[in-house]
């Protein structure tokens, strides 16, 4: 019986479902290892289920990128979500302060204050926001704040079959994200925006096509696009 209790206690941690190593003042961040992503879309589906995201919208989605010509073809998957930037473009444009960055770095929306003007949706250079036709407000990923408050990792991390998504506290030196940042070379999307995203990628170069390269992208945002 005690083994069973111990297993029940340890298993979520073993499978990465509870937040491991958290500091007094956490700064939440995510690392996505594109070398491990298998394109199963479990993150996309679990996010929708966890957060009740309407059918045609996404808080996180996966882009499929096919590069090159036969026989030299490579396929990569690029999971994208709100980058919870250090200097978010969406926050200062909100006319009523409904979207703001918390002390722990998570950019959230106060749904009771949002007027639904759509300015933040236009301002986000990562296209991470959408207008929710049911709540009549802007909506986006909040790192599953309700789960974090219970000590659990976001749904997309908990459900990642390949362990490609790593979540944790950047302020704790031994947290999984801090370790990943130390041990691996990471990159962010669109660094030129100056937003300082806090979603980091390992192996991002395999998902970004070179200029002039043949590429096909499949994304729920843009459909299927091929550049010859």
């Amino acid at each position: 019986m005690s083994v069973y209790i111990e297993l029940r206690r340890q298993l979520p941690a073993i499978f990465g479902r509870v937040i491991d190593k958290k500091s007094e003042k956490p700064r939440w961040a995510m690392v996505i290892d594109l070398r491990k992503c298998i394109g199963c879309y479990a993150c996309q589906a679990s996010c929708k289920m966890e957060n009740g995201v309407p059918y045609e919208f996404f808080r996180t989605h996966v882009e499929q990128i096919e590069r090159g010509r036969y026989p030299n073809v490579r396929r990569a998957f690029l999971p994208v979500l709100c980058n919870h930037c250090e200097k978010p473009s969406c926050v200062p444009v909100c006319p009523v302060g409904a979207t703001y960055k918390r002390e722990d770095g998570i950019v959230v929306i106060d749904y009771d204050r949002c007027i639904g003007c759509g300015y933040c949706i236009q301002a986000c250079p990562y296209d991470a926001r959408y207008f929710n036709p049911y709540t009549r407000t802007a909506d986006k990923c909040d790192f599953c704040l309700h789960r974090i408050e219970q000590g659990l990792v976001p749904a997309c991390v908990a459900n990642c079959r390949a362990g490609a998504r790593i979540f944790g506290d950047l302020n704790h030196p031994d947290s999984p994200v801090s370790k990943a940042l130390k041990e691996e070379g990471v990159a962010v999307l669109k660094p030129e925006t100056g937003n300082e995203p806090h979603v980091f990628y390992i192996g991002l170069e395999q998902a970004i096509p070179l200029r002039g390269e043949r590429v096909t992208v499949v994304s729920p945002k843009i459909g299927v696009v091929t550049y010859e």
Binding site: L78, Q122, D127, I208, P209, I222, V225
Partner: peptide, 14 residues
């Protein structure tokens, strides 16, 4: 707003 960008850097026109 008709120009949509995939984060892999590819643009599409809707």
């Amino acid at each position: 707003q008709l120009v949509e960008e995939a984060l892999s850097g590819v643009y599409a026109v809707t």
